[in-house]
Design a protein around this nucleic acid. Structure first.
Length: 242
DNA sequence: CCCTGATTCGC
DNA sequence: GCGAATCAGG
């Protein structure tokens, strides 16, 4: 198998999406886990939480045995030991949203809450920890939910605009499958090609290809270039289950 | 043992 | 550029 543009795109998507190299290799087919990792590094995308590289401790106080890695070559090794890059520990999506509650599937819930309780017309700065932070209400009535809204972003809310989050280019034009129509939610469930692959099928949010709930997942507030948060909502049904 | 990603190096 | 072999941590 060769690395076609499409396969590279899939690799990037899955890699940045947090899939493991094994999962990606299985998804692509015809390549090994090592091939995926090698390719990923060659592409420049790299460094996801790796077990072997988790540590990078500093010894500010007791720096007694800090050595520039003597690196005893057991058999083969290039001596070229460049100065270790400073490599500031990357922001690390410490977003406690994960542990905080459950990330997705809140649109309907929030809507229900909003309907039953009094919603302030103007967002109150920071006085109401009980109510979830509501950014704005979409045209269809669903609540817009920015990627970082589970925990409010630290800096002042940057300007946002809605962009369609295309679930997958592969299944985007498979409307001929099953009985999709403009009346039912086209949100894919599961993985294409698998026996249990299907679409949501719920009543659509008028004007949208998805139901209200999936509109909340498909259309998300996009943060400015600088402050995007990579961790995308798990694609489709999440990681493969086999 | 299993898993993970990182790295090396012959091709 | 590719990826098997190898390394090393969890």
């Amino acid at each position: 198998m060769s690395w076609t543009d499409e396969r590279i795109a899939t690799l990037k998507k899955l890699w940045e999406g947090g899939s493991t190299a094994s999962q990606i290799a299985e998804e692509l087919g015809g390549v090994s886990r090592n091939a995926v990792i090698g390719k990923a590094h060659r592409l420049g995308l790299k460094s996801r939480p790796s077990p072997v590289k988790a540590n990078d401790k500093k010894k500010p106080a007791s720096a007694a045995k800090s050595k520039p890695a003597p690196k005893a070559p057991p058999k083969k090794t290039a001596p070229a030991a460049a100065a270790p890059a400073p490599a500031p520990a990357r922001p690390a999506p410490k977003n406690s949203a994960q542990a905080n509650k459950r990330p997705p599937s809140n649109a309907v819930e929030l809507a229900a809450t909003a309907a039953g309780e009094t919603i302030p017309k103007q967002p109150i700065p920071n006085k109401n920890p009980d109510l979830p932070k509501i950014v704005s209400v979409g045209p269809g009535g669903f609540l817009r939910q920015g990627p970082g809204d589970q925990q409010p972003p630290i800096p002042p809310a940057p300007p946002r605009r809605l962009v369609p989050a295309k679930p997958s280019p592969e299944i985007a034009d498979k409307t001929s499958l099953l009985d999709l129509s403009d009346k039912v939610c086209r949100w894919p469930m599961g993985h294409p090609g698998e026996p249990d692959f299907h679409f949501c099928g719920a009543d659509v949010n008028p004007g949208f290809p998805y139901c209200v709930e999936h509109c909340g997942r498909a259309f998300q507030a996009q943060l400015p270039r600088g402050s995007r948060r990579p961790p995308p909502p798990l694609p489709f049904g999440g990681p493969r289950v086999r």
